[in-house]
Design a binder for these strands. Structure first.
Length: 596
RNA sequence: GGUCCGGUAGCUCAGCUGGAUAGAGCAUCAGCCUUCUAAGCUGAGGGUCAUUGGUUCGAAUCCAAUCCGGAUCACCA
């Protein structure tokens, strides 16, 4: 049980004993005491005054005395300032906590709870390579899936690949017309970039054709509709839907190039999936559901044959679920897939990591699912994240300001190499060890940078800041870990009798206690990150823990502690910190080096 | 126009289920390496928490209005 829980329970019990009144933990707040006051944790008494009809001084005194008397193993002192009851917690309490947990690599994690959750993240189109926005999505989804696991859930990581549609046909048409049979192999260009280049070529050619048509006197709308390359693309989509062999073959070939490229990137950044869905398999799903919905009068048919749902009673609008020509729209397949996920895996929760531009769409999806009475409708959760912008504004593919995922990853690794070489600390590393280290640090910086911000907020990507390895960064935390491991290695060889030290009680120094208190909070943070769908809580926490350790480290020597007993405590403290850093960074997808 | 999200230090962000004098990092300035890794530590300056009103013992936090920025409201996905 956490210290805060203890204080809440003890306070409730004491108040009942003292005043014969019942309170819950919601009736008063327990905070960490501000550094300028004496004490470790504080009970805020203002909210109790009315119910008890007593002054804060009286309540504080009686409550403080009662707590010390009833729980001497926890509370050693108190003081009252205005309505704040500041409690001092016994050093033994902290030391026991330290000894109990310092070597537990599962500290903070929960037992399996029997619940199954699917987390869908990274839903790429197969006509363009991944970019910075995808990275935020992928890191977020992956990390949140790991946070769920640490909180006792069974997790299925999934991905839906948007591998069909008009946008895919665009790159296919462009390849047919402009490639002269070129392939990623023949050009040496990574498959997803290769295909993406033809998508760009399509748009260039399309723009030219539109301009020419306008020059002949057509309006812009006419020109956009009539441009031959666009017509060819639309024809290709029809051919695809009819399964025309040469179109299918080209489609398969070009997608396979893209997948090869994606696989490389996913592997490079440490993303993985348990189940991959393809839109080409799922786009027809949902039509049966539409039919059933029509019978149940959830949907209705307009005169032209199109099928709709009216969501006006829920504050939304009418929404089409099937076109007049009988084909399905985006939302239709999503309804189908939502049901399929449930039926295939019997999941208790279905989480979608998707950008906030689709907030409306996801709201509609959930609402329709509910109205259809789908079993999992209540448990659909949209983990909505904000866009990544540049210091110069939004990323726009048309203006070529999109930051490519592979490029930025390479850049981070190169930068970490330069920093590391400049510091000259790891000259005895082998080539392979160096490569590993550069990647660990570069990826650590990148992931931490994208994960440290509250997911739902739009964030600004500042290139100079992202490659900074000082302060609130991944490498700062990694460095803290490496320093601890360095100390522990030396002590291991120097002093094997360390574990035999007996402990008397000589009290904890301020920074020692601060560090234990910070470590004690990890399980709460881990749980909070889960319930709030927010990995940034972990990033913020682990930075704070690392900072606390670094202050402690510079102030007090571990190896040359004042006494053997102090040394013993500090070694445990260092191990505790290192274990928490390692396991929490793992939840962010960030590795920590033994040396750097 | 409707709906949703946001506005906190020069910049990037915490804090938002109301609590003590609003915090970090970067940048700027001043210190600290013969002592466990200086990718570190210590300190200084820097704020009308968008504005106005309300709720109360107490508001960056809750409510209302206003201003500014963004997203979305397709027989696109």
């Amino acid at each position: 049980m956490s210290i805060i829980n203890n204080i809440q329970n003890n306070t409730i019990d004491s108040l009942r004993a003292l005043y014969n009144k019942s309170f819950t933990e919601k009736d008063f707040q327990v905070n960490q005491t501000k550094p300028e006051f004496e004490g470790d944790y504080t009970v805020v008494m203002f909210s109790l005054l009315k119910a008890l009809q007593l002054s804060p001084d009286v309540i504080g005194k009686q409550l403080g005395e009662h707590l010390i008397k009833s729980y001497p193993e926890i509370y050693t002192g108190y003081n009252i300032i205005k309505g704040f009851l500041n409690l001092s917690v016994a050093d033994d309490y902290w030391i026991n906590l330290l000894y109990k947990n310092y070597n537990d690599i599962c500290y903070g994690k929960k037992e399996m709870n029997g619940k199954k959750v699917m987390v869908e993240y990274s839903s790429p189109n197969t006509n363009k390579p991944l970019h910075l926005g995808h990275l935020r999505n992928i890191f977020l989804g992956w990390s949140y899936a790991e946070i769920l696991k640490a909180n006792g859930y069974q997790v299925i990581k999934s991905c839906i690949v948007n591998d069909r549609g008009i946008h895919i046909c665009k790159s296919m048409i462009a390849w047919q017309r402009f490639a002269n049979g070129a392939t990623p192999q023949s050009t040496g260009i990574k498959g997803d970039h290769f295909v993406g280049d033809y998508y760009v070529k399509f748009n260039d050619a399309y723009k030219d054709e539109v301009a020419q048509l306008i020059a002949t006197g057509k309006t812009k709308e006419q020109a956009e509709k009539e441009a031959p390359i666009m017509k060819a693309t639309q024809q290709m989509l029809l051919d695809w839907e009819n399964g025309k062999p040469e179109v299918m073959e080209l489609w398969k070939k070009m997608n396979s190039w893209v997948y090869e490229g994606f696989d490389f990137t996913y592997k490079n950044i440490g993303a993985d999936f348990d189940k991959v869905y393809y839109e080409s398999d799922t786009y027809l799903l949902g039509k049966d559901i539409v039919k059933q919905g029509l019978e149940k009068n959830v949907f209705y048919k307009k005169d032209d044959g199109s099928i709709w749902i009216n969501l006006q009673a829920d504050g939304l609008d009418e929404k089409i679920v099937q076109r007049s020509d009988g084909t399905s729209v985006y939302i239709t397949q999503d309804i189908g897939l939502a049901l399929q996920k449930y039926e295939q895996y019997k999941i208790d929760q279905s989480i979608y990591v998707i950008g906030n531009e689709q907030n409306y769409h996801m709201k509609v999806l959930q609402l329709i699912s509910k109205k259809l009475g789908m079993p999992n409708a209540e448990n659909i959760y949209h983990l909505s994240y904000g866009m990544v912008e540049l210091t110069t504004g939004k990323m726009k593919s048309r203006e070529g300001t999109v930051v490519d995922a592979d490029d930025i990853v390479d850049e981070m690794i190169t930068t970490s190499k330069q920093h590391t070489e400049a510091l000259g600390k790891v000259q005895d590393f082998t080539k392979e060890e160096l490569q590993d280290l550069y990647k660990t640090i570069g990826m650590g910086a990148m992931k931490f940078y994208l994960l440290r911000v509250d997911p739902k907020k739009t964030m600004v990507f500042n290139p100079a800041e992202s490659i900074d390895f000082h302060g609130f960064t991944g490498p700062f935390v990694q460095y803290t870990y490496a320093r601890i491991k360095s100390i522990l290695r030396k002590l291991e060889t120097a002093d094997t009798a360390l574990n035999q030290q007996q402990l008397t009680n000589s009290g904890l120094l301020k920074l020692e206690k601060e560090l234990i208190i910070a470590a004690e909070q990890y399980p709460i943070v881990l749980e909070q990150a889960c319930t709030e769908h927010n990995p940034s809580l972990i990033a913020n926490y682990i930075f704070n823990l690392s900072k606390t350790f670094n202050s402690f480290y510079s102030e007090h020597s571990i190896a040359k502690a004042e006494t053997e007993e102090k040394k013993y405590v500090r070694v445990k403290l260092a191990m505790f910190t290192a274990n928490i850093i390692k396991s929490s960074m793992q939840l962010l997808g960030i590795a920590v080096p033994e040396r750097m």
